[in-house]
Structure formats: structure tokens, C-alpha cells
Simulated scan of single mutants.
Amino acid sequence: MAHEVRAVVSRKQGAPVGVETIVVPDPGPGEALVAVQACGVCHTDLHYRQGGITDEFPFLLGHEAAGVVEAVGADVTEVEPGDFVVLNWRAVCGQCRACRRGRAQYCFATHNATQKMTLTDGTELSPALGIGAFADKTLVAAGQCTKVAPAAEAAVAGLLGCGVMAGLGAAMNTGGVSRGDSVAVIGCGGVGDAAIAGARLAGAATIIAVDVDDRKLQWASEFGATHTVNSRERAPVEAIRELTGGNGADVVIDAVGRPETYRQAFYARDLAGTAVLVGVPTPDMKIELPLLDVFGRGGALKSSWYGDCLPSRDFPMLVDLYLQGRLPLERFVSERIGLDDVEEAFAKMHRGEVLRSVVTL
């Protein structure tokens, strides 16, 4: 039996989103129906609304979510009805060349639900990142459901579904931050602050936050930054070197994703240091660096896609650390809102007034 539920739909590029009734089918083989309890408002949803990812309108927005499995289709073994889960957009296939080599975090054939959710007139919806969770219920591939400890609040746990995991993973997985390291993070929004929290959790001794907004730098300090640099007032490369004994940081994370910030990350790292790009650039952006500098400075230049996470490994561990009081995930939640408030949440996010607005259902 199909389910008619409320959901946030983007019908046209750049136009305000609206709450509409959509139709969600019962799960088929390999699928799960999830009653959504909370979903964060992420920049990726805004990119969909603006037509910056694909033009496959209408979109069912929302993807940074947690909820309870309501029903599963045939052949589902990962979860069962009643499980509290965080949704992810990396349902690994287990068969591609990455999975066969034991590197499932790089799976090249991640998948989504086969059936389509629709508007009431039958128009098929394109769910954001294959999830579509600004809705009372959503249909996903069962592998997109990661079971975690039910003691965690949904508004907090759901943030691991995208931005917070991207930042934590950029530091802990991609950057390989370890005890005693020096780390610099350029851009202190949700992803950057998560990278700072990850660096602190990994035992970094010096954590330098760089941004143009003093309010964001204050947030960064609350997540564990030991030093802050307002790059409107100080040249960030020189400031990072000064704060690391003239050497540069062991790991520099670019959470902005612009040519100028990537160049800063490249030159602000120590010799043989690591630069990590986790901020998402636009298709038109290009970077030019002297090849001799790339060779002469050594080290590693890495891109971090979803924090190089493996949801089945990382989500339960991070939720447990949160429940132990060792990872302050609750600080990312700036406000709790309803489905009708998503358009205003986009505006607040664009103005830099919040880390995360979270829709609660």
C-alpha cells in the first residue's frame, strides 16, 4: 500500500521550495521504508534547489537524516522494523573493484531504492542524494540505513548522514590526523567545525581555525580550535606558519573549496605535510600551481569524498563517542524547525547565521 505524506519539494531552479503531498511506495526487494524523525538542512540541498547538481526537477530535498525503519522488502538483512537508523548515501555494493579489495569506503557502485517516490499526479521525484528525507517517510535502499544506538537524539545523530561526517572524516580518515599533530582548518562552517572536532578527537596538539567571520571563529573555538585566524585581518599562510614554529601545519583542511583557499592550504602545510580538500568546488573553478612546488614540498594532496567514511563502521562508533560525552555533536544543532521553515533555513544558512537548522518530524 502506498503512503501519502508531507514533503519538501523543489519544482523549479531557484524557486522557493514548498511542502506538498507525495506518494511513497511500500518497500520492494532490497528496500526499506523509514519514518523520518529529523533531517538537517545541508548546503547540498540548496545546491539541488539552485540547479547546481542536476536539472532533474522536481527534487525531493533532505538527506541528512535519522529515523525508525517502518518496513523492509524481501531479501533485506541489514535492518528490520523498529531499528533506529541514520541514513547514508553510500550503500556499498560489495562487488565492485574497490569493495573486492577491502576498500568499501571507496565503493564505485553505490545504489539507491529502485522504486520511485512521486507527486500525487504520478510525476517522479528525484530524491536528494538518493534519500529525500524532508518528508514524514522516505524509501531508500536498505544499505542506506545504518543502525545506531537508539539512545541518541535523532536531531543529533542524523547530522552524521552528510556534512558532519564529511568534516570528521576529512580529519580522521583522509587526513590521518594523529596524536601531537598540528592541524589548520580553512572555513569554519559545519564541515570545518566537524573537522576541528575530529582533529581534537584524534589528539591533535595544535588546531588552527581560519575564517573571515569572527562569529564562526568563536564557534570553532568551542569545537576545539586552539588558535583562530581572521583571514580578513591576517594572511592565513603566514599566520599558520607563525603558529607552528615557522614550519606549517602537518595537515591543512580546505573546507571552503575555492582556488584561493586551496592554494592557502597547499602552502600552509609543513614539508611532507598533507592538504585535504573537502569543500566542494563548482565546475568552473581551476587551480594553477608551480609544478616544482608540488614536487619540492612533497607530502600528499588529497580529496575527501564523504569523509572517506564507511557508514557501517563509522556511524555507530561516532554515535557511541557522542553518548560517552567525547564528541559534542549536539553543538552543531543551531535550531529545530518544521517542514514549512526550510526555505527560511536556506536563507539563514546562506547568511552564515547557523551551523545546522534541523527539521524535526
Rank of each mutant, 00 (worst) to 15 (best):
V34T: 13
V36D: 12
C39V: 09
V41T: 13
V41K: 11
D45E: 03
L46G: 08
G52Y: 08
E56S: 11
P58W: 06
F59L: 03
G62M: 02
D75M: 00
V79N: 00
V79S: 00
W89T: 01
Q95A: 09
C96F: 05
F108D: 09
A109S: 12
A109G: 15
A113F: 14
T118M: 05
G122S: 11
T123C: 11
G132T: 00
A135N: 07
T138E: 04
T138V: 13
L139N: 15
A141L: 13
C145H: 07
A149K: 10
P150D: 05
E153R: 12
A155H: 15
A157D: 15
G158T: 07
L160R: 04
G163S: 14
L168G: 04
A171H: 04
N173C: 12
I186P: 00
I186G: 03
D211I: 00
R215K: 10
Q218A: 13
S221G: 15
E222I: 09
V229T: 11
I240K: 04
R241T: 10
G245W: 02
G246R: 06
G248P: 14
V252D: 09
E260M: 02
Y262Q: 02
L277F: 11
T282R: 09
T282C: 02
I287C: 11
V294M: 09
G296I: 01
P311S: 06
S312L: 01
L318T: 12
E330I: 04
A345L: 00
M349A: 05
G352E: 05
V354E: 08
S357A: 14
